[in-house]
Design a protein around this nucleic acid. Sequence first.
DNA 1: GTCTATAGGCTGATAGAC
DNA 2: GTCTATCAGCCTATAGAC
Lengths: 222, 222
Amino acid sequence: MNAEPEPRSDVKQRLVEAATLLFAQHGFDGVGIREIAAAADANSAMVAYHFGSKEGLYRAVLRAGFEKGCAKDLPPPPQADAPEAKMAALAGLRAHIETMASDLKLGEHTSGLDEAFMGILMRELGRVDSPYLPELDREFMAGKFEQLAACLRILRPGLTEDQVMYLCGTVSGPLLLYRFIPGVIRLRTGGKPFPEDREALCAFLYDHTLRALGVSPADAGA
Amino acid sequence: MNAEPEPRSDVKQRLVEAATLLFAQHGFDGVGIREIAAAADANSAMVAYHFGSKEGLYRAVLRAGFEKGCAKDLPPPPQADAPEAKMAALAGLRAHIETMASDLKLGEHTSGLDEAFMGILMRELGRVDSPYLPELDREFMAGKFEQLAACLRILRPGLTEDQVMYLCGTVSGPLLLYRFIPGVIRLRTGGKPFPEDREALCAFLYDHTLRALGVSPADAGA
DNA sequence: GTCTATAGGCTGATAGAC
DNA sequence: GTCTATCAGCCTATAGAC
C-alpha cells in the first residue's frame, strides 16, 4: 500500500560512486575493496553483502554509468523507400552526432563521476574479450549503431556493407576519439580540455560528413 | 676487439614477450611476475634482475612494442608557401593514412604479440594520467600528428586551430576506432576481424576526406 | 646470470556478534 | 544492515647459494 522501504543513507550508492572513481583511476585489480569501502565511508563487508562480490560491484558500476549518462532514445531508423527518406536520414545523422556527443559528455564540464565512468568504459571497450560488453552493447549501443548505418545507407546508396562500416567509422571515430585518448589530447592542447565547444564540434562534423557524402541539406527536401 | 657478450638464450626478451601477452589479457595489476616468469620459462627473480621491478618490465614492454611496430619516418610536413604545397599536402595525407593503418596493423593478420601490444597501448592511451605516455608520445606519436595537421592546414586554409583539431579527428578517429574497440567491432561483424582489406579502408578514407575538403587530386598539381 | 627460499604485506571473502 | 575479526592465499622484492 505504501512506498518501498527505501534505505535511508544509501551505502549501496555510496559504494558504487566511490568504486567508480577508484576503478577509473586504478583499474579493477588495482584497487581493493577495503580502499573502496573507506572512500565510501562504509565497511568492506558491505561489498559482499550488497553486491555479492567485488566483481558484482564492478558490474553495478558499469550499469549505473550507462543508465545515468546514456540516452536511450533516438529517432527510429528511416525507411529507405519512404517518400522523405533523405530528409529523415539527414535528421537522423544530425541526431546521432548530437546524442553521441552528449553521451560522451564532449565539451561539457563533466562531473568527476561522469569522467570516471568514461574511463572505465573505455578500458572495457578496449578489451578483446570483455565478458561485460555483449550485454551492455545490446542494451545501450547496438541500436545507435544500426540507426546511424541506416541513415548513411540512404544518404549514400550503393555501398557495400564493408564500406558502410568504414563510413560509420568516419562519423563515430572522431566522436569517440576525444574521449578515448584524453591523455594524448591533453598533451596536444597543453592541458586544456578539448573540445571546448560541443555544438561547434557537432556542426563541423555534420558539415564535414555532408560534404563528403555530396549531399546538401537543401537537396534533401525534394 | 670482439662482439658484445650477447646472452645466448635471451631470458630478457622471453620475459618481455610473455609479459606483453599477459599484461594485454589481464592488465598490469591482473597478473603476477610469477605467472609471467612461468610463461617465459624463466625465474621470477629475473624480473628484478633484468628490469629492476615489475614496473620496469612494463616500461620495457611498451618501449619494445613501439620500437618494433611503429614507423618512425614520414614525409616532412609541407611548407605552406612552397609552390607545390598542395600536391605535397595530398601526398602527405595519403602517407599519413597508410602509415597509421600500418602502425595499427589494420587489416593484417597480426601476430599474437602485435595484437597484445595494441591492447596494452589502448589501455594506456585511455588513462587520463598515464605516467608513461608523455615520453612515448614525444618519441613516437607527436610528429605524426603535426605532419597531419600541417597537411590539412594547407588543404583547407583559413580554419581556426580548434577546427584543425576537429579535422585531424576525422582522419585519425576512424583509423583508431577499429583498434580501440575490438570487442565491439567483433559484436557488429559476428566475430570476423575488421577491416579485412587495409587498402580498401585507406582508399575509402582518403577519398572521403578529399570529398569533404572539396579538393580533387587533379586540382592539386597547378 | 640463474636459482631457491622467504620475508612482510596485501588480497577477497566470510563467520558471527549486534 | 552493519560491524569486527580473521582466514587462507596471493603478491613483490630480496638475500644469498651456486
